[in-house]
Simulated assay, not measured.
Amino acid sequence: MRMFGLALLATMVMTGNAMAAPKWAIVVHGGAGVIERADLSAEQEAAYRAAMERVTRAGAEVLADGGSALDAIEAAIHLLEDDPLFNSGRGAVFTAEGRNELDASIMDGATLSAGAVAGVTRTRHPISLARQVMTASPHVMLMGEGADTFSREQGLEQVEPGYFYTERRWRSLEKFLAEHGLPVPPKPQGATKPDEAAALAHDEGKYGTVGVVALDRAGHVAAGTSTGGTTGKRWGRVGDSPIIGAGTYASDASCAVSATGTGEYFIRLTVARDICALVELKGMSLQAAADEVIQKKLTALGGDGGVIAVAPDGQMAWSYNTSGMYRARMAEGEPLVVGIYKDEP
């Protein structure tokens, strides 16, 4: 048995809970960045809090009914990918060429199986495609046209590129291109008028990503992350979100982590895996491990962003060095907690 498993078993025996079933737990993020009270209207704040509550409760319902951590993650991220408030799926930012190129990844802590996609353009729910890569292919990551082809072959829901269009994200692109002296491309074919929710979305900067980590009743953890990347990205840029070990990692021997932030720094530090290693190999608490990597290592390197995490023993944590992060957590026997700003729990 792994060292972590032995330590956890010993703790359970000492506390008289050797036969107790693990509780379920879920933690959700909707991106970190420049998110301050002065920047959000009351209506915007209410919209984000409501969205985070809705998503977290949806995942919690799956777990409470005995569903797997993977199922809870997929269900919750579907809602985030369909919500134009967030930089994933329908709310994704545009590349300099005026395209929405979507990235996602998912990892199963019980088996260390993982799947990821990068540069997807027609799959409504990239997180489901990442899961299909994990379960229905011999690979871990697919990208671009090949990933879209695999998605069609797997029967996943396909949409026209215009489905992902929101006016707010297009205006952000126009501003970015003007600042960098680059031409504005034509709008995607089939671009539709955004719904009212899109008008409430806040531009948190370049950090927007969504992610979920979960612990199920079987004692297994998993992690998933989905993003549209950064506004005006060029040359096929890929960030940390689809990189296993950087933006996403899960192991029953330690914890599950999903990250959001300036991806290049998270890749260089292998942030998600590093947090899990501190838990497994140094015996650090989940919160201490997350803070060690985010508040010290990431900050010292000049990167910014944050993480959410959950451990097989039910520990939940988040840590970020930006002014805010859309976040929520819930566990069996514990109330829902939703936060946005730095001064909230």
Rank of each mutant, 00 (worst) to 15 (best):
M3K: 10
R90Q: 14
D82M: 07
G224P: 09
G224M: 02
E157T: 15
P22M: 11
L6T: 08
A64R: 13
F176W: 15
R124Q: 13
V257T: 08
C276T: 11
R171Q: 15
A7S: 13
E344H: 04
E174K: 12
Q295W: 04
A130W: 03
T299M: 05
K206W: 08
P161L: 09
D203P: 04
L298E: 09
Y207E: 14
E196Y: 01
S319K: 06
V238W: 01
E81G: 06
Y163D: 13
Y48H: 06
K342E: 03
G324S: 09
P185V: 14
G224C: 05
E160V: 06
F176H: 15
A75M: 09
K175E: 14
A32K: 05
A25M: 05
F150D: 09
A114P: 00
D103Q: 10
I77Y: 00
A288Y: 00
I73S: 08
M141A: 14
A96G: 06
D313Y: 00
G66I: 07
W24D: 11
G232H: 04
G162V: 05
R99I: 03
S285H: 02
R171S: 13
M284H: 07
A289H: 02
R237Q: 11
R99C: 04
D65E: 15
A246S: 15
T95C: 06
G211T: 07
G190R: 01
L79E: 14
Q287T: 14
L286V: 12
D82C: 11
L298W: 04
M143T: 15
M134N: 04
V221S: 03
K187L: 13
A25S: 15
T111I: 10
E101P: 00
R169C: 02
N87F: 04
P242S: 09
L85E: 05
T95D: 01
Y48S: 07
G119L: 03
L182Q: 12
K206P: 03
G119M: 01
V271C: 10
R54W: 00
S68I: 07
G236I: 09
S241H: 01
G283K: 08
G228S: 08
V184M: 12
A178F: 02
V271P: 04
G224S: 04
I308R: 01
G232E: 06
P312T: 11
R54Y: 00
I275M: 09
T192K: 13
H220D: 12
T135S: 14
Y163F: 15
L269K: 02
V221T: 05
S128R: 15
E280K: 11
D71G: 10
E145D: 14
R37Q: 10
M1A: 13
G146F: 05
A20M: 10
A46S: 12
R273W: 07
R329E: 14
A218R: 12
M141T: 14
A191I: 02
M14N: 10
K342A: 14
G67T: 07
A290P: 01
L142Q: 08
F150C: 12
D195R: 08
E174I: 14
I35H: 02
I77K: 01
R54C: 10
T192E: 15
G119H: 02
L182H: 03
L200G: 06
Q158L: 13
L278H: 09
G67Q: 02
T225Y: 03
E332N: 08
R124M: 13
A114K: 04
A178S: 13
F266C: 09
V271F: 00
D83R: 02
R54A: 15
L142N: 04
E45T: 12
G16S: 09
A222E: 03
I35Y: 01
P22V: 12
A110C: 05
E36W: 00
